[in-house]
Amino acid sequence: MSSEMITQTKLWDDKTEQHQNPQQILSVEELSILNERSNLKGLVQLIGHLAIIGCSGYVWATNFGNWPLAIPALIIYGFSLACMFAPMHEAGHRTAFANNRLNDIVAWFAGVLSFYNSTFYRRYHKWHHRYTRVPGKDPELTDLTPRNLGEYFLVLSGLPWWLDKIQGHYRAALGKLDNCPFIPDTAKAEVIRSTRLQLAVYAGAIAVSFAVGKPWFFMYWLLPLIVGQPLLRFILLGEHTGCTLDANLLTNTRITFTLWPVQFLMWNMPLHAVHHLYPSIPFHAMPQAYPMLSNHFTHVDSGYIKVNQYILANLGKLPC
């Protein structure tokens, strides 16, 4: 056999092996470099995110009544507040920072701001990664996949998300976790304590608002989050909707190129297929990892408008 034929055969064998085990596409050496976590990069990202929340929130608070300025500020403020889901998610993976204690603290407070409980979510999300798009096992598949225009706008409204979070926090606070197989018995007490503490924070904020006679809780948290959730739902719909219902990490998750501000506030999560293929890669290294993996992904789209157009055009035909 000629050397050229041997080379071609080896390339074919390598490609076949990678298809059978996509997580071997990157070498051990490449992955070890990409996996390097950084407290500095995580803090810079977090400070930048909080600065956007602070600046837009200040404009919203000081220009009430000046609607041409206040409304855009409210939208930015609400969206950046809802996007605290992203650092909660990243720190929940313990990849946002090199220090695990810092990851846990940031994840919890980011969850408070975005109405997620990070202690519960970490276990829930672990199963989502373990059983991504596997019917009957992936807990995210219990979320509504829109089958018609009414359900599409219902999902975008955020109403099902609010109901799920309110019911979920209530049940967790009461210790009713029997329908949550992703939470082991050894973690139930921690989840209950964490949820109760989070609800106590909200109760304290409401009490302060009533004590001073100002609608602070509503104006600076609840209303902005209500405004920001539809934008976040618009983005999160694109992560898996319309992708394959199987365990193939190259076909069951989407890459979506988007505007830099969205990429920033989402902590590079629009490169979602990279994250699912190698969840150990921190947010700051995903743009570096994508070119090394780009040829292997099936779903790569140029923008969330295009993704949602695809979803709308295929309502009732999407796997769910």
Score class of each variant (00 low, 15 high):
Ser2Arg: 14
Ser2Ile: 11
Asp13Trp: 11
Asp13Ile: 12
Lys15Asn: 14
Thr16Ser: 14
His19Gly: 12
Val28Ser: 12
Leu31Gln: 15
Ser32Val: 10
Ser38Leu: 12
Val44Leu: 13
Leu46Val: 13
Thr62Arg: 10
Asn63Thr: 05
Trp67Pro: 01
Ala70Thr: 09
Ala73Lys: 05
Ile75Thr: 10
Gly78Lys: 08
Phe79Ile: 10
Cys83Pro: 04
Met84Lys: 06
Met84Ser: 11
Phe85Gln: 11
Phe85Cys: 09
Ala86Ile: 10
Met88Asp: 06
Ala91Lys: 06
Gly92Trp: 04
Thr95Ser: 08
Ala98Trp: 00
Asn103Leu: 03
Asp104Lys: 05
Asp104Leu: 03
Val106Gly: 12
Val106Glu: 13
Trp108His: 00
Trp108Thr: 02
Gly111Asn: 07
Leu113Trp: 15
Asn117Thr: 00
Ser118Lys: 03
Phe120Val: 01
Phe120Pro: 04
Tyr121Met: 07
Tyr124Gln: 11
His125Cys: 10
Tyr131Asp: 15
Arg133Phe: 08
Gly136Arg: 08
Leu141Ser: 01
Asp143Thr: 06
Phe153Gln: 07
Phe153Asp: 06
Phe153Arg: 07
Phe153Ile: 00
Leu156Lys: 10
Gln167Glu: 01
Tyr170Cys: 00
Lys176Gln: 09
Leu177Glu: 06
Asn179Thr: 14
Pro181Arg: 11
Phe182Met: 09
Asp185Cys: 12
Glu190Gln: 07
Ile192Asn: 04
Thr195Arg: 01
Gln198Phe: 04
Leu199Asp: 00
Leu199Pro: 01
Leu199Gly: 02
Ala205Phe: 02
Ala207Trp: 02
Ala207Gln: 00
Ser209Ala: 00
Lys214Gln: 03
Lys214Val: 02
Phe218Ala: 03
Phe218His: 00
Leu223Thr: 01
Ile226Asp: 02
Gly228Tyr: 12
Leu231Met: 12
Leu232Val: 11
Leu232Asn: 10
Phe234Gly: 15
Gly238Glu: 08
Cys243Thr: 13
Leu249Pro: 00
Thr253Asp: 02
Leu259Tyr: 07
Val262Arg: 10
Trp267Ser: 08
Leu271Gly: 01
Val274His: 03
Val274Glu: 04
His275Tyr: 02
Leu277Thr: 09
Leu277Tyr: 07
Ser280Val: 08
Ser280Ala: 01
Ile281Lys: 01
Ile281Trp: 05
Ile281Ala: 04
His284Ser: 04
His284Glu: 05
Ala285Cys: 01
Pro287Arg: 05
Gln288Arg: 12
Met292Val: 10
His296Leu: 11
Gly303Tyr: 03
Gly303Trp: 04
Ile305Pro: 06
Lys317Thr: 14
Lys317Asp: 15
